[in-house]
Amino acid sequence: MSIKKFFYEDNHFLEYNDYNSSFSKALILLPGTFGTIKQNELAEFYKEKNIRLLVVSRVGYGNSTYKQLENYLEYANILIRLFDFLKLDNFSLFGISAGALHCYCLDTLISKRIENIFIYSGMAAINEKEVIQCYGNYEQIKRFYEFFAKQSEKENGEFMFNFYNEIFDEEFKKSDRYKDTIANDKKALGQEVKLQSKDWGFTIKDVSSKVYMYHAKDDKEVPFQAVEKTVEILKNSSLKLVEKGGHFNRPSFYKFNEFIASKL
């Protein structure tokens, strides 16, 4: 399936991939901070399950045009316009890492259209004090987000790029995830962390859809204690907590997708 463009206003568009669009059951994937809409392998997996997979770009990722956003709600409302355009009335959401927050935001706006929310290695609700205090280096994390809130999107993007560039191997740097994330002079990457540090425009206490979460205890990005506290705040959620797997592990990722397919 070729990449498509959704123009939500003059000269501004989001890229998206609409895989297996002939199927009635639909799953919408919102990737993590380092993410791409190019999910051909995952689409083949869901094709065998007779499931439609829609993967939508962040604002400014890949070839999508960059626009400065006020908060999560602004992006969510663009997504809703895309869903309306595609005549998607009922669907499930699948959030990976920071994509979890975008799923929660959508649910506060259109919960009646959402059947279930699935979260893999999801970001915790760091805007809740009892959650961010679960981070072992709480004071440092708090200062980081205060820093992101004051800096520009471009400055944040450069910071994130320099930080992660020392961690990522050369193979990852050749991937679509990497290239699509640092597009638009890294401003989109910087905007993602800035949205996390600002007022979100919603609270996860208002999420009403069923949330299924998968997380590993050895996840270095998101402490499982913070995820457990997030689960307590969500009204209707369950957490599968495993010992090993880190922030991403291919076998566990596809095992979770098997679970998702069984619920659709």
Results as ranks from 00 to 15, higher is better:
residue 1 M to A: 03
residue 2 S to H: 14
residue 8 Y to L: 02
residue 9 E to F: 03
residue 9 E to C: 14
residue 11 N to S: 08
residue 15 E to L: 00
residue 15 E to G: 01
residue 18 D to Y: 05
residue 19 Y to W: 06
residue 21 S to D: 10
residue 28 I to V: 13
residue 29 L to K: 05
residue 32 G to W: 04
residue 32 G to P: 02
residue 33 T to K: 02
residue 35 G to Q: 09
residue 35 G to E: 01
residue 36 T to D: 09
residue 39 Q to G: 15
residue 44 E to C: 03
residue 50 N to V: 02
residue 51 I to W: 04
residue 52 R to H: 11
residue 53 L to P: 06
residue 54 L to I: 14
residue 58 R to G: 00
residue 59 V to S: 12
residue 60 G to V: 08
residue 65 T to M: 01
residue 74 E to S: 03
residue 75 Y to N: 13
residue 76 A to Y: 07
residue 77 N to V: 00
residue 78 I to F: 09
residue 79 L to Q: 06
residue 84 D to A: 08
residue 87 K to M: 15
residue 90 N to V: 02
residue 90 N to T: 07
residue 93 L to V: 03
residue 95 G to P: 05
residue 95 G to A: 00
residue 96 I to L: 08
residue 97 S to R: 04
residue 99 G to S: 11
residue 106 L to V: 00
residue 108 T to S: 11
residue 109 L to V: 08
residue 109 L to C: 08
residue 109 L to S: 03
residue 113 R to Y: 04
residue 116 N to Y: 10
residue 117 I to A: 01
residue 118 F to Y: 12
residue 123 M to Q: 14
residue 124 A to V: 08
residue 126 I to E: 03
residue 127 N to E: 03
residue 129 K to H: 09
residue 130 E to P: 04
residue 133 Q to I: 14
residue 134 C to P: 02
residue 136 G to E: 15
residue 137 N to F: 09
residue 137 N to H: 13
residue 139 E to K: 06
residue 142 K to F: 02
residue 142 K to S: 12
residue 145 Y to H: 13
residue 146 E to S: 15
residue 148 F to Y: 14
residue 149 A to F: 05
residue 153 E to F: 05
residue 157 G to Q: 09
residue 158 E to Y: 12
residue 158 E to H: 08
residue 159 F to I: 11
residue 165 N to M: 01
residue 168 F to A: 09
residue 169 D to A: 15
residue 170 E to R: 09
residue 171 E to Y: 09
residue 174 K to N: 12
residue 174 K to M: 03
residue 179 K to E: 09
residue 180 D to V: 05
residue 180 D to F: 10
residue 182 I to E: 01
residue 182 I to W: 04
residue 183 A to E: 11
residue 186 K to E: 12
residue 187 K to Y: 01
residue 188 A to Y: 13
residue 189 L to A: 07
residue 194 K to Y: 04
residue 195 L to I: 14
residue 200 W to R: 10
residue 201 G to V: 06
residue 202 F to S: 02
residue 204 I to Y: 11
residue 204 I to A: 13
residue 205 K to E: 13
residue 208 S to W: 04
residue 209 S to E: 04
residue 213 M to P: 00
residue 213 M to G: 11
residue 214 Y to L: 15
residue 214 Y to R: 06
residue 219 D to M: 06
residue 219 D to A: 10
residue 220 K to N: 09
residue 221 E to T: 15
residue 224 F to T: 15
residue 227 V to F: 00
residue 228 E to S: 10
residue 230 T to A: 07
residue 231 V to N: 02
residue 235 K to G: 07
residue 235 K to R: 10
residue 239 L to C: 07
residue 240 K to P: 01
residue 244 K to F: 07
residue 251 P to S: 12
residue 251 P to C: 06
residue 253 F to T: 00
residue 256 F to Y: 13
residue 258 E to N: 09
residue 259 F to V: 03
residue 261 A to D: 05
residue 262 S to R: 02
residue 263 K to H: 13
residue 263 K to V: 04
